[in-house]
Computed example of a mutant assay.
Amino acid sequence: MTFEISARQILRRKVRQLRNSLTQEQQHLAAQTLCQKLCHHPKIKTAQHISLFLSFDGEIDTHPLIQALWLQKKSLYLPVVHPFSPGHLLFLHYTPETPMISHPFGIREPRLNVQSVLPVSQLDVIITPLVAFDAQGNRLGMGGGYYDRTLKHWRNSGSYPIGIAHDCQQVDALPYEDWDIPLPEIVTPSRDWNW
């Protein structure tokens, strides 16, 4: 067990360094390409309630996608750490006017407002961040397990998760744990992976 946790930490560090080494031009091109692909994705075209995230630490930039989805009149939601249920996420409605705060990890998130919360079961699409992924749909996150808990019952909820990443975040194989939830689809600028 210690070996696997250690291997996961080493892999996280390595892939985070890779994505942080991308130039601004590479980041920009990746974000624009991904935005175009996702705006034409069948699940997103028919979705009304979409959760995504604000990019952090070299993650593929979601700002072009957010702007494009707002233009399409989609309702967007951002994850917030649940204040009363440790290790879980809430999803809050996100508009250009949403009051934002800085999370202790340095991530911007909406100020908690219970009137803005949408239950996970009512999200049509959950655009999911990840640190690394493999060709079997396994996802390595930041290590908190927030998305694994959120996606545990996605097949019965009606919410469809899509992981997004830079191409350099693909690895040959990930150390896998029982609680890890594989994704049905991961989209990178150059490829769509479906399982």
Rank of each mutant, 00 (worst) to 15 (best):
R108K: 15
C35E: 08
Q122V: 03
I10S: 15
Q169Y: 05
T98Y: 06
H82K: 06
P99G: 10
L140M: 10
Q122D: 12
H103Y: 06
Y176A: 11
Q67P: 05
T2L: 13
E177I: 10
W193G: 04
M1T: 12
L38W: 07
V81H: 06
V114T: 12
N113F: 00
L174H: 07
L76C: 04
L69A: 06
V187I: 13
A47P: 12
V81Q: 07
Q36V: 13
T150I: 01
L151D: 06
F105I: 12
P119W: 07
I10L: 15
L112D: 04
H103T: 09
L11S: 05
E109H: 03
G141A: 11
I164G: 09
D172P: 04
W193R: 03
W70K: 02
Q72V: 09
S116W: 06
L112W: 01
Q26N: 14
T62N: 10
V171I: 10
H41V: 13
Q136D: 14
P79T: 01
V114E: 12
G58A: 11
L92R: 01
R13H: 12
S6K: 14
E59S: 02
S51F: 07
L22D: 07
Q72G: 05
P184Q: 03
K43P: 09
A30S: 14
L123S: 09
S51Y: 03
Q115D: 11
K74N: 09
D178G: 11
G163P: 02
Q169I: 04
Q36P: 09
E4S: 15
R12K: 04
Q170I: 10
G141M: 05
A30I: 09
A132V: 00
K14I: 05
M100F: 11
S6P: 08
Q26C: 09
S102M: 11
W70L: 15
I164H: 11
I10A: 15
W179C: 06
T62M: 10
I5C: 11
S190E: 08
N156K: 12
N20C: 10
I44D: 07
L118C: 01
L90D: 08
Q24I: 08
L52V: 09
P161V: 04
E25D: 13
T128V: 06
V171T: 11
L118N: 00
Q48A: 07
H40N: 15
P79F: 00
F105E: 07
R155Y: 08
K73R: 12
Q67N: 15
I60G: 02
Q67H: 13
V171N: 07
P83F: 01
T23D: 11
R191F: 05
K73E: 12
I10K: 13
G137E: 03
P129Q: 02
V171Q: 12
P189T: 06
L112K: 07
R19G: 00
T150W: 00
S102W: 13
Q36A: 14
P119K: 04
E25Q: 13
V117W: 00
D148C: 01
Q36H: 14
